[in-house]
Amino acid sequence: MANPTPYSHLYRLGLVLITGLVLFMMIMIAQTPASWNYEVWYRGDALVEMKSIPIVYGGNESCVECHADEDEEMAEYAHKLLNCEGCHGPLTLHVQDGEKTADAVGKSDWQCLNCHQAQISNPLDYPQFPGDISKHENIKKNTLCVKCHAPHDPALSEEDEDEAMFEF
């Protein structure tokens, strides 16, 4: 090569650095997602994608579509505020594409006690049960809660109670 000036290596270094910088900027622009929001600093499409995540729990309004009768009855029952799927399992395990795929679950003592077993931590006015059947008022025989307490309408009238006593 021709005799270099004292600066020629620095020019070349500068060229390398600038080329590197330009390359980096190009990759950076190419790699920044198209929907990038520079104000909030996030990928705009993320919201669209998150919106389309499939729902697992349909909510009571989806149950009503098939079970309108039960829903009407429920309106007067003590358990009217409950979420159906809380006891019966989520919609998508029961129905897929409008077709029933499996029976809904429900009716075990565990489910009743899950809410109504006496807890010192519960609100005082909340209906609670000691958990041990032998401590149940008037009932000494081991049996399922749902034998007497209809899960949708657990409150017993006095007549119901007498009848229940008679059975056991």
């Binding site: 998150m50 919106k51 389309s52 729902i55 729990y57 909510g59 505020l81 799927e85 809410c115």
Partner: peptide, 23 residues
């Protein structure tokens, strides 16, 4: 937790709110 963004955008409540029996 995403406050069930996908549910809320669909007009539903977050699933924990839906599931809560006592409000």
């Amino acid at each position: 937790c995403s406050w069930c963004y996908h549910r809320v955008q669909d007009g539903k409540s977050p699933v924990c709110v839906e599931a809560c029996p006592t409000g």
